[in-house]
Design a protein around this nucleic acid. Sequence first.
DNA 1: TCTGGGGTCCTAGGACCC
DNA 2: TCTGGGGTCCTAGGACCC
Length: 418
Amino acid sequence: MNKKRIIFHIDVNSAFLSWTAAYRLQQGEILDLRTIPAVVGGNPLERHGIVLAKSIPAKKYKIETGEPLFSAVQKCPELTIVKPQYDLYIKCSNAMVEVLKEYTPKVQRFSVDECFLEFTGMENVYGDYIQLAKDIKERIKKELGFTVNIGISSNKLLAKVASDFTKPDMVHTLFKEEIKYKMWPLPVGDLFMVGRKTVSKLNKLNIRTIGDLANFDLSVLKAVLKSHGVLIWNYANGVEDSEVRCGNFINMKGLGNSTTISFDVEDIRTAHMILLSLCETVGMRLRDSENLCSLVSVVIKNSDFLMYRRQRKIYYATDSTKEISKIACELFDEIWKGEALRLIGVSVSELCTNEMYQISIFEEENIEKERALDSTIDKIRRKYGSKAILRGSFLHSGINPINGGISEENYPIMSSIL
DNA sequence: TCTGGGGTCCTAGGACCC
DNA sequence: TCTGGGGTCCTAGGACCC
C-alpha cells in the first residue's frame, strides 16, 4: 500500500517585483511598489523592453508578463517601471531556500521563485500541514519581507495548481477529492503544460475547461497531440507521480547563454566577439557544475525575429572556454546568411561528469595547460569580479567581455537580513 | 509587436548499418 | 535501380515552462 504523500509548492507572489519592492522599503523608501500599478522591465532602448513581473494593481489593467513595455504603458499611462536586479533576486531566492530547508531536507528548487517540499512520512513531526504552511508563509513574510502562496497536495502537479489559486499570501489545498470542484471548472490553459498553441488545438476539439479535457476521449487526444496529449490528459485527472528532487546540479541536462544585442550585428568580427563573451559564461558555469559537454549549439535570431540554430556533437567531452567558443564560431559561420542579427546564443548539452577527463587523441598536448588557465581565470573572477580579467580583443570594442556574468554590485543593507 | 533569457522534452527526417 | 525493413544516431525545429 502506498503511503499518502504530502507535497507543498511554494510560489513567491510577483517575485521580481516583490523582491525589488522589499529591497526598496529596506532602503528607506516609503512607497511600496506592490500597492501601485508597477512592473519590472528592461530598457527598450537596449531592445530589452518587456514586462518581467507585475504588481497586482498592474494586473488589473490586463498587463501581462512578457508583453512589451510599450503596450503596458498604453494600458496604464501612469505605470511605474523599475529595472531588474538579478543579483538581488538570486539572494532572495537563496534566502528563501535556506528557510525552507529548516522544515524538511527534501526541497526541490523548481525555478528562481518556486520550490517543492516533501513531508511524506513526517506525520510525527508535523500534525497539521495547513498550519505548517501558514507558519512557513508567515515566517518568510516576517523575516524576508515578501509573501508567498503555498499549495498542498499529494503530488507535485496538484500542489502547483493549488498555489496558483487566489493570490497573494494564501495557503490552498487540492487533494484528489477536491479536483472536481476546484480544478475542473478552470480554463484549460491554466493547466501546467497547456500553453497557447495547445489551447487553440484543444478549443478546436471543443475542450475549454480542465474538466472537459479530463473527460475527453483519450484515444482522440492521442491521435491529435501524441504523447503530449496523454501527458495533459493525465494532468487534468490529477495523475502525476514524479519525485521531489533535491541537490544542486543533479539532472542538469545542459546550459546556455544568449543575449539580445542593443544594435543589429552585421559583421562577422563583432559576432565572433559576442560568441566568445557568451562562451566565457557558459564555460565557467559548466566548470562550476563539474561537468563536461559533448554537444555545442548556436542560435541566432534575425531582425525579422526568425530563429534558427545549428548544433554539433563532439567526440571529446570538454569544458574549455576556448574549445567551446571555437566550435561556436564555426557553427555560426555555417548558419549565418549575412543578415542583420538581434540575438546570438550559445548552449552546451550532453553533459557528463568531469571526474575522468578523456583527452582526445587528436588534441594537442597542451590541453592540460588550457584547463589550468580556465581554472585560474575562474578563481580570479570569483574573487575579484567578472571584469577583473578579460581578453585583449575586447578592449575598446564596446562589447561586454562577459555576458550574463556575475555582477559585482552588492546590497549591503539587504545582506544583513539575507 | 516597440516582442528577454533561462531551461526541458518531443518529433521528423536523413544517414548509416546490418 | 523498377532495390526491404529495422535500429540507431544525428540535426533541426517546435512546444512547453518560469
